[in-house]
């Protein structure tokens, strides 16, 4: 109740709530592709390597979120190129980019003169520090992401489902795969403010993974995952507010618990169904 009362009073809390809702669109839509295409490791690589761009932006006095966006797109293209050209060594190369990106970021941040950056804010997020400028950027990225997915839903679906068939039907598979990774990168940037780059992969995958347990199409998965993502953000924010817990970590724990509970329920439901069939 105190959270609701504070929500009407404080602009920073309203910003936080709005940021959570805007981020959930990216996490629901692109998270669904990450889950069905099974590219969680690639998305994790993009998320962590982004610190390099954020660190560089700090060092050169630019806005860290723009640095993150540019770095995320660059890393997505690099990872996509590696994934398409060197599939055998994909794991090693992405792991290397993951670590090198983070190391670059830490070096830049450590050398930023006259200002000690709170590294924890970027590693674990701080939804309460979201500014109006962040919100506008998030909204723009959401619109761009939704527009592209709506226009090319069938091509993205074909590339995620059956690359070989998509290629035979004349779909430029490499182009759409790269675009898909770039949109995942955009979603990562959307989520960094909320939960930080270390935890971002959980919010990108858990709502979609829960949705997959209940719906049978990618389109419905996106809708359910977006609603779940929004729910987890609001719930995490509300739970963390009064005892002054880190909001990002609380949101992830709420999502993690929901996933465990849902998996347990799904498993029980399947066992019950199997028993009913065998006793018939």
């Amino acid at each position: 109740m105190e959270f609701i009362h504070s929500l009407t009073q404080h602009a920073f809390l309203q910003h936080a709530l709005l940021a959570g809702l805007l981020a959930s669109i990216g996490c629901g839509v692109m998270g669904s592709y990450v889950v069905v295409k099974r590219i969680g490791f690639l998305a994790g690589g993009i998320a962590h390597a982004v610190l390099g761009g954020m660190g560089a932006a700090f060092f050169f006095g630019a806005e860290p979120m723009f640095g993150a966006l540019i770095a995320a797109i660059m890393v997505a293209l690099l990872i996509g190129w590696v994934s398409l050209g060197w599939r055998q060594q994909e794991d090693t190369l992405i792991g290397a980019m993951w670590a090198v990106g983070m190391a670059t970021g830490i070096l830049f941040i450590s050398q930023t003169p006259g200002y000690q950056v709170d590294l924890m804010t970027y590693l674990f997020g701080n939804i309460l520090l979201v500014t109006s400028q962040d919100l506008w950027l998030m909204m723009t990225l959401d619109i761009l992401l939704l527009l592209l997915v709506l226009l090319y839903y069938r091509q993205f679906l074909a590339v995620a489902f059956d690359e070989e068939f998509a290629r035979l039907r004349g779909v430029p598979v490499a182009l759409f795969y790269m675009l898909l990774l770039c949109l995942v990168a955009v979603s990562v940037v959307l989520l960094i403010r909320i939960v930080g780059l270390v935890l971002v992969i959980a919010l990108l995958t858990l709502p979609a993974a829960i949705a997959l347990q209940y719906v049978h199409t990618v389109g419905r998965m996106m809708i359910v995952a977006t609603i779940l993502g929004a729910l987890f953000c609001v719930l995490g924010l509300a739970v963390s507010y009064q005892p002054d817990l880190p909001a990002g970590a609380t949101i992830i724990l709420v999502a993690g618990m929901a996933y465990l509970l849902s998996t347990l329920l799904t498993s029980l439901r399947q066992r019950y169904k199997a028993r009913v069939i065998t006793t018939r």
Binding site: D162, T217, V218
Partner: peptide
């Protein structure tokens, strides 16, 4: 993969 028969054919 979460896709129906109809969606597969439409692809």
């Amino acid at each position: 993969f979460p896709i129906t028969v109809e969606q597969t054919v439409l692809l």
